[in-house]
Design a binder for these strands. Structure first.
Lengths: 149, 149
DNA sequence: GAATATCCTGAAATTGAATTTCATCATCAT
DNA sequence: ATGATGATGAAATTCAATTTCAGGATATTC
């Protein structure tokens, strides 16, 4: 984690940016937070230890991390976007409409078929999004206790 | 087309709704418009023949069509949502980031693999979205003339 | 270690799509 | 015709996201 933060720091400097206390707190908070956080959730969380931090800074910092390739923006159609760290390999998402749980999965076969489709249309892909919405095992079984989010 | 509009009319009546001139214009405009329109585009278009129609009515009418199963809401991350008619069979989208062209494709193999994935996680799918972003044949070849949208 | 250019900040203002409110009008059932 | 209720357009509101702005912090140059 320390090494990661230092590396990001160096990249920001190399790109003409400067260090800042607030940004450091947000970046570390982001990597420590559970994945798929909203800006609002992350803001609330970093403010516990650094209450002066404004939401605008959190927005700005996550855009920055996205530009540097360390974060990915997600949109599960909830109104607010979510962010995940981009350290783990590519994957897609199962999103439970009841409890909000997000299950990540990886399927190289699907990816291969996607490549076939794009090739068939002479299309040059740069990114894709695949989300499957529905009910997770627990919620589908009716045991659904409470809404997590 | 006439039969379709009449059928929708009947369904609205059956559900306790009433007819209205504005709504009829919007619905017909929607099915006549090219696919994947934004509310703003559709509003502009219906106002050519019915300038009194407000944007709120277009929003409301498309939500209604969605509820009845005749329209689908799309979000290509452009800020504004798009809508497509839900008459043709299920398909996914290739979205060109240069010219905005949307290519529809259908791939039952991908769908099957998706089912496998969900089953593997005990997940009960209700919907999914798969979009591949990149550059269409024309834009990728550099001939890209102008931005259509 | 001062000077300075420039970046970063938090608060507040702004944007823009989407939704809601509200007074009025239109449509359906009787 | 009449009454009940749905639908309308304009305006107000919501809400996430972005931008503005004046002040503060940080790197760089000497």
């Amino acid at each position: 984690m320390k090494r990661l933060l230092e590396r990001i720091d160096r990249e920001i400097l190399a790109a003409g940016g400067k260090r800042s206390r607030s940004r450091a707190v947000v970046i570390e908070g982001f990597f420590r937070a559970r994945d798929h956080v909203t800006i609002e959730e992350l803001t609330r969380s970093v403010r516990e230890s650094a209450p002066w931090i404004g939401a605008a800074t959190v927005y700005r910092t996550l855009k920055l991390l996205e530009r540097l390739g360390y974060a990915k923006e997600l949109d599960f159609g909830e109104g607010a976007r979510r962010y995940e760290s981009n350290l783990s390999p590519h994957h897609d998402h199962l999103v439970c409409r009841q409890c909000g749980t997000v299950i990540e999965f990886e399927d190289t076969e699907i990816e291969n078929l996607q490549d076939l489709v794009t090739r068939r249309h002479g299309f040059h892909p740069t990114a894709h999004r695949l989300e499957i919405y529905g009910f997770c095992r627990i919620c589908a079984s009716g045991e659904s206790a409470e809404r997590v989010r």
